[in-house]
Design a protein around this nucleic acid. Structure first.
Length: 573
DNA sequence: GCCGTTTTCGGCCCGACTGTTTTCAGTCG
């Protein structure tokens, strides 16, 4: 049973309860529970098997009632109360709520008055001017709804971290020159390093917001202005992404940065802590009565509550408050800790650069080593190397090594795990590599048990050291293959295989949640870029962000080690 | 529906913006 399947049921329950005009706090309880379930690093079914209902109730936001629903879902695959709710409403009505500008109240009203229950019917009614006659509606609201529908149609949903980062940098570059801008900081899920970004949140401090708002909404790559107020504006960029700008007074910088970074549940928690102290927290600061007692710096947003500073990547309500209160937050890995890249391709297969060029680029980044790991023979699309070519390639890696100083070029390969779990080269070849990566490039559609067994079998080969992009997903393009990651992680521990966190922003595989589980189980991680050209070596930063989200520290990641220790660790079988 | 070193009942984050409201509801983050 997947945690996310149940999280989705709880999220939808919340939406349906909102349509019923239920107690808003009950609705929030469902949302909170769904959010916490999504963020769990282990499987609900395993938790239940081990500890039953009491174990489920130890999960924050899960009490008596919800634990019973989880139990029901584990046993039957269904939640009856949810099923019953869905029968009370037309099937597509949730799609109405998800149109920007529409909410449960509006959806329900339109359903009652005009029998609208699908986005298509809503669009038709709005085009025919039928909405403006309803009490509380007018021409503008009608136009807004039409705009929301077209926005929804054009929106590609979420954006990759690298694309969002590039736009954020562009906006910062353009706006930092505007008159009166003191500080400018991209916040939101981008700052938390989430793998995909819904919209950009940019924070600026200034005492004169108006001209900054004007400059923002007039940026050349802005296609629509959604709202434009005194201190807050929202626009659509030409790639379809929404960007929000907030301008606050410099004395509120810390509180605003904290607030706009989120996540939402994390913010609510800080505000509740404030209440307990008789204070109030908003994006403008920490207040005792009308007096601001903190929030000029972001550090104060934690120190005032007796907490360690919580880095943005940890602000996901995954136990960061408990750890910060005890002074037990991890000292997160940093980009500067990385001493080498352990996954790279050259023009021997599907890369663009030579061995030497890749090594020179890695040296420029200050690395001590780089592993050249071209594809093995079965990966024909990538022009994988035959045994003969592979042996030749090892020689060429060694001779390239003699032509450069200050960096060690390691000879390796990214060897396919064949459908039966055997490796794509015989042991006599494998043993000649300094380090060997294995990974899946074919037969993605195997049943879960077979795929898991395939991977675990490969781990038993003593010449294999690293398992690359462990779930095979491509963000927004390809789902992960069916695989029991808990078993894979445990096998990695048993056979001393390091799991790769592939830093390419379209992979980020391991995910943050699996990184954390790996750490809990004592499985070592390597962060590599899988570069196919020299410029991609700089994608390492996205891998490090994901590792930080997974609470990883320097000692959890093997390519923070100097070369001698690295080889000792990986070859210790 | 959850939660508790003030509480097992009575709370539950806080503010901006918009439209149509004559004092505020709905939506969003």
């Amino acid at each position: 049973m997947e945690n996310n399947a149940l999280a989705k049921i709880f999220y939808e329950t919340a939406e349906l309860l909102a349509l019923k005009n239920e107690n808003p706090f009950k609705i929030r309880a469902y949302q909170k529970a769904a959010n916490n379930i999504e963020n769990l690093s282990n499987n609900l079914e395993e938790i239940y098997k081990k500890g039953g209902l009491p174990a489920l109730q130890e999960i924050p936001g899960i009490g008596h009632d919800l634990s019973l629903k989880i139990e029901e879902f584990i046993r039957t695959g269904k939640v009856r109360s949810y099923k019953e709710l869905t029968h009370e409403f037309p099937k597509e009505i949730i799609n109405l709520i998800n149109i920007p500008g529409m909410g449960p109240k509006t959806a329900l009203l339109l359903n009652k008055k005009l029998k609208i229950d699908t986005p298509a019917k809503l669009e038709k009614a709005a085009r025919h001017g039928l909405l403006r006659n309803i009490p509380g509606f007018g021409i503008k609201k009608e136009e807004n709804i039409l705009r929301g529908i077209s926005l929804k149609k054009r929106s590609k949903g979420r954006f990759r971290l690298d694309e969002a980062t590039e736009y954020a940098e562009l906006i910062v570059e353009k706006l930092k020159k505007s008159k009166g801008v003191k500080k400018i900081l991209p916040c939101g899920s981008l700052r938390r390093g989430q793998e995909t970004i819904g919209d950009l949140d940019i924070l600026i401090t200034s005492t004169d917001p108006k001209p900054i708002m004007d400059a923002f909404t007039a940026l050349p790559f802005v296609t629509n202005i959604i709202v434009k107020g005194e201190t807050k504006s929202s626009v659509i960029l030409k790639n379809g992404m929404q960007a929000d700008l907030r301008v606050v007074n410099p004395k509120s910088f810390g509180a605003a940065a904290h607030y706009f970074t989120g996540c939402k549940a994390h913010n609510i928690n800080i505000r509740q802590l404030a209440q307990k102290n008789g204070w109030k927290v908003s994006e403008y600061g920490i207040f005792k009565g009308n007096k601001q007692i903190g929030g000029t710096t972001e550090e104060e947003m934690f120190s005032k509550f007796g907490l360690q500073f919580i880095p943005p990547e940890l602000r996901e309500m995954r136990g960061e408050f408990e750890a910060a209160a005890k002074g037990k937050l991890p000292k997160l890995i940093e980009l500067s800790d990385i001493k080498g890249d352990l996954h790279s391709h050259t023009n021997a297969t599907d890369g663009s650069n030579t061995i030497l060029e890749m090594a020179q680029a890695a040296k420029k980044l200050g690395y001590e080593y780089i592993l050249i790991s071209d594809h093995s023979q079965s990966t024909r699309v990538a022009r994988g190397l035959s045994i003969k070519q592979c042996l030749q390639n090892i020689k060429e890696i060694h001779s390239a090594g003699k032509m450069i100083s200050g960096i060690k070029i390691l000879a390796g390969a990214e060897v396919d795990i064949l459908p039966d779990g055997k490796l794509d080269y015989p042991d006599e070849v494998l043993k000649q590599f300094d380090l060997c990566i294995c990974s899946i490039h074919s037969n993605f559609k195997m049943p879960k048990e077979k795929m898991t067994a395939r991977i675990v079998k490969a781990f038993q080969n003593k010449y294999v050291h690293i398992f690359a992009h462990p779930t095979g997903r491509l963000i927004g393009e390809r789902e992960p293959y069916a695989v029991d990651m808990e078993q894979v992680l445990k096998a990695a521990k048993k056979y001393k295989i390091a799991l790769e966190l592939n830093a390419h922003p379209k992979r980020l595989d391991l995910t943050d949640i699996y990184c954390r589980r790996a750490k809990e189980l004592g499985v070592k991680v390597v962060i590599s870029t899988d570069s196919h050209r020299t410029s991609q070596l700089s994608l390492m930063k996205y891998g490090v962000l994901t590792a930080r989200r997974g609470w990883l520290e320097k000692h959890d990641v093997l390519n923070t080690l100097p070369i001698s220790k690295l080889l000792l660790r990986l070859k210790d079988k």
